[in-house]
Simulated scan of single mutants.
Amino acid sequence: MADDPKTLVSTEWLAAHLGDPDLRVLDGSWYMPDSGRDARAEYEAGHIPGARYFDIDEISDQRSSLPHMAPPPEKFISRMRALGVGDGHQVVVYDGMGIFSAARVWWLFKLMGKTDVAVLDGGLPKWKAENHPLEDMPPVVRDRHITVQRQSHLVRDVAQVAAASKLKDWQILDARAAARFRGEVPEPRPGLRAGHIPGSMNLPFMELLNADGTMKDLPALQAAFEGAGIDLARPVITTCGSGVTAAVLSLALERLGHNRHALYDGSWSEWGMYPDLAVEKG
Rank of each mutant, 00 (worst) to 15 (best):
S101R: 05
K110T: 15
A129R: 04
L218D: 12
V236G: 01
G46E: 03
N202G: 03
A2D: 15
L26S: 06
L249G: 02
E135T: 00
G123F: 11
N210M: 11
A246V: 01
M273I: 07
R52T: 12
W271I: 00
F54Y: 08
V236R: 00
A45K: 06
Q222C: 05
V161L: 01
I59W: 07
V158C: 09
S267G: 05
D217F: 07
K114T: 10
L154R: 11
A194P: 09
R156H: 09
A159G: 13
D212P: 02
D34S: 12
E44G: 05
G282A: 11
D22S: 10
A262V: 09
K128R: 11
P188M: 08
E44K: 02
A129W: 08
A51Q: 03
L203N: 06
V85W: 10
W30T: 13
A102W: 11
S200W: 00
T245V: 07
P186K: 06
V92H: 08
P204Q: 00
A252R: 07
F109L: 07
I77N: 14
G282I: 15
E44L: 06
V148T: 15
K75H: 14
P33M: 10
W271Q: 01
T245H: 00
Y53C: 08
Q160F: 04
L218P: 08
V279I: 05
M32S: 11
K110W: 14
D217P: 13
S65Y: 13
A175G: 01
Q62K: 13
Y264A: 06
Y94G: 11
Q90D: 10
V248G: 04
P204G: 01
T147F: 15
D116T: 08
H17L: 01
A45P: 01
T115W: 09
G266T: 01
G227T: 12
L66A: 14
L154E: 09
P138W: 04
G227S: 13
R193H: 06
L209A: 10
W271R: 00
G199L: 04
Y94C: 12
P67E: 12
A164D: 01
E44W: 04
S65I: 14
L249D: 04
P21A: 14
R104W: 01
H258K: 07
D27N: 09
H68C: 15
S269Q: 11
F225R: 07
H153S: 14
V155I: 15
D38E: 11
V148E: 09
S64K: 05
D265L: 10
V236L: 03
P72W: 05
I48S: 10
V279T: 02
A262I: 10
S78K: 08
P133Q: 15
E280T: 07
M97E: 15
D27K: 04
V93L: 13
S250N: 09
S60C: 12
P71D: 12
L124Y: 10
A102R: 12
P190D: 12
I146W: 08
R24M: 07
M1P: 15
L14I: 10
R40K: 14
D22G: 08
R156S: 11
L111F: 13
F100I: 12
P188A: 08
L120C: 12
P138K: 05
Q160E: 10
